[in-house]
Amino acid sequence: MTERPTRPLPHVAHRKGGTASAVRIVPEEIPVAFSYGGTTHAVMMATPADMEDFAVGFSLSEGIIEKASDIKEIAVEDHDQGIDIQITLAGNKRDALTARRRHMAGPVGCGLCGIESIEQALKPVASVEPEGMRLTAGDIVQSVKLLSSMQPLHTETGAVHAAGFYIAGKGIVAAREDVGRHNALDKLAGALARQEIEVPSGAVVVTSRVSIEMVQKTAIIGAPVLIAVSAPTALAIRTAEAAGITLVALVRGDEFDIYTHTDRIEIGRTAHVA
């Protein structure tokens, strides 16, 4: 893939009452099309990195596949205006997608776009309730600190989101970045599926606010805990409660808020050590 995730661009910097010519590294944002069997299903604006993970994670989030092996082949094609990801599904999944298209009112572009009804947008999420999964207060704090150290694109640009997966005693075992918070989480989902990482024993950690879609994607991943540096919406909290997901948000230093299923977090204990 020839597209770069970042590029240096000139600008005029205003500092301390004066101006000067400068160069800043900025993240790239381009159209990324997901095509199944030669037909475009969706187009997302995204950072051109980790495209194979993005393809798998998006397919999981859309309910097109259930596991990475449901995809037979992924071909990332560069075009003048963006990237087209050609995805070939296994036979049974290809037939299911063909049947699904007959009932779609339009293409799904992002989030709730193209959904036919409110009921579809607010459909129940699968229950995530692994036995005996626990994190300490120290784990919560450490997970955010570790994710912060695994964001090379953000270090360069200061303008992208990240999603990581934390396992107590192991740290962040996978992390992905994108200009879009949903995209970063989809890329993480794809990475976890492709690497066959056991998700019931860990937590999704994100650098963004928590909307219902972030909770829905976490449920699809199968993670019992979602940790965020910013605030959740009311609907996200209700959805996490119904899904059996422990929602931790507004992690600031050693302080944070627990909104749902608080029994999974052991307050007053330090992080598990690898």
Rank of each mutant, 00 (worst) to 15 (best):
R100A: 13
M150V: 04
A105T: 12
L135R: 02
L147D: 01
H154Y: 12
G114A: 12
V173I: 14
E131P: 02
A159F: 08
S127M: 10
S149P: 06
R101T: 09
R176C: 02
R176V: 00
L135D: 01
A162Y: 07
K123C: 15
I118S: 15
S143I: 00
D139P: 01
H154V: 03
L153P: 01
Q120C: 02
C110W: 15
I118D: 15
G164D: 02
T136S: 13
T136N: 02
I118E: 13
G111V: 13
Q151G: 07
V125E: 10
S148T: 06
P152R: 00
A175Y: 01
V108R: 10
P130F: 05
R134C: 03
R100W: 14
S127F: 13
S117A: 10
A105L: 11
V141K: 01
S143L: 02
P152K: 00
M150W: 08
A121N: 14
C113L: 01
E129S: 09
Q120T: 13
V108I: 11
L122A: 14
E177P: 01
H161E: 05
G114Y: 08
A126Q: 14
S143N: 04
R102L: 12
V173S: 10
G111E: 14
R100F: 11
I140D: 00
V173F: 05
H103L: 09
R101L: 11
A105S: 10
K123N: 15
P130A: 03
I115H: 13
L135P: 02
L147V: 07
P152G: 00
C110M: 13
H103G: 06
Y166R: 00
V125T: 13
S143V: 02
V179N: 12
A137W: 08
H103P: 04
P152T: 00
V160T: 14
V160D: 03
E131Y: 03
H103R: 06
V141Y: 02
R102D: 12
P152W: 00
G109F: 14
A126V: 13
M133Q: 05
M150A: 12
R100G: 06
V125I: 04
V141H: 04
G132Q: 10
